[in-house]
């Protein structure tokens, strides 16, 4: 047992390429997909294609960042879609002057956006509070807000559509900086911060320790409850931002539709990206790559004349395949 280390080092030397491939399987898959498209899909290499695909995944990845952290602690957050709806309902209520009247439009938009995102963060914190205070399983605790949250959004807008045409706000979904869509920039920034936090910071280490072995983490002095509340709060904040992006793109807020099914897209991106669903190992860049793979597969199929419904079947198979490969890579 003590000499277990020596044969291991030999192994890693000889199978270096194989190890690299399995370690970066998602990246390899993404590159393969891109290569395929470069050869077979017409007009693939264009700024427009890039932008289309990146804008498609932006909201999923923004939510996926929070979801990755939650899953890294061994939890799950089903309520992300509902929190998007809440955020998407609150912001227009403020900047359209329905709930409160602020005459200066820039101020109104700023207040609306901040309040909306903070509200979503507060609901996320509530998820964390339920989970840590009452020791309720995350899947059930967040189910509460999944059901009630959309109701809250619907009630607060009476179920009405809130249409608007407001450049001061819609830059977040439609604007561009240096030719890059703003939402894509937000996505990249969030991914970069979260990836850095996971790798280098105390908070990241604490998240992974809790996901890896919660009891041991507590006995090593990690404030488990506090870390978890923050993680769910972050998931809420991310959902809040994503909610704003979605309503800005749509030029309207519909509490019945904003973020519908988002929890599944985000979880799928996390799973395909290689984060361990049982917690303890996570990669935020993986989630980005995962979302891109899912999107690009769909794009490839559609661009080559395949029905969107069939694309769903392929996506289903992709999720299963990714998780299955992950399991095999470990054992």
């Amino acid at each position: 047992m003590s000499n277990a280390a020596s044969p291991k080092t030999i192994e890693t030397n000889t199978f270096n390429l194989m190890a690299f491939l399995t370690k970066h399987a998602t990246l390899v898959a993404l590159l393969a997909l891109i290569a395929f498209n470069v050869v077979f899909t017409k007009h693939f290499i264009s700024i427009q294609t890039l932008n289309v695909n990146l804008t498609q995944v932006a909201t999923i990845v923004i939510v996926g960042v929070g979801m990755t952290l939650v899953i890294a602690t061994g939890g799950i957050d089903l309520s992300v879609g509902s929190m998007m709806a809440i955020s998407g309902a609150i912001a227009p209520l403020i900047f359209l002057g329905t709930a409160v009247h602020i005459s200066e439009i820039h101020l109104a938009v700023a207040v609306g956006m901040i309040v909306a995102v903070l509200a979503a963060g507060a609901f996320g914190w509530f998820n964390g509070w339920l989970i840590t205070r009452f020791r309720i399983q995350p899947i059930i605790a967040t189910l509460v807000l999944f059901i009630a949250g959309r109701g809250i959004a619907q009630v607060s807008t009476n179920g009405n559509l809130q249409p608007f045409k407001l450049g001061e706000f819609q830059w977040i979904g439609l604007g561009r900086w240096f030719g890059v869509p703003v939402q894509v920039i937000i996505m990249v920034v969030l991914v970069a911060i979260a990836a850095w936090v996971l790798k280098r910071s105390l908070f990241g280490r604490q998240i992974l320790a809790i996901g890896g072995n919660e009891r041991a983490a507590r006995l090593a002095g990690i404030p488990v409850a506090r870390v978890k509340r923050w993680v769910y709060c972050i998931s809420g904040l991310c959902s809040g931002i994503a909610g704003l992006v979605v309503i800005a793109i749509n030029s309207s807020s519909d509490a019945n539709l904003v973020g519908l099914g988002m929890e599944l897209d985000a979880i799928a991106a996390v799973a395909v990206g290689g984060t361990l669903l049982s917690g303890g190992r996570a990669t935020v860049t993986g989630t980005l790559i995962g979302a891109l793979i899912i999107q690009l597969v769909r794009y490839t199929l559609l661009a080559n004349g395949v029905n969107d419904d069939v694309a769903k079947l392929v996506k289903a198979a992709l999720i299963v395949l990714a998780v299955w490969l992950q399991r095999h890579g470990r054992s």
Partner: peptide
């Protein structure tokens, strides 16, 4: 819409 809130 209150029904989903109450159910929750």
């Amino acid at each position: 819409y209150w029904q989903s809130v109450i159910r929750g």
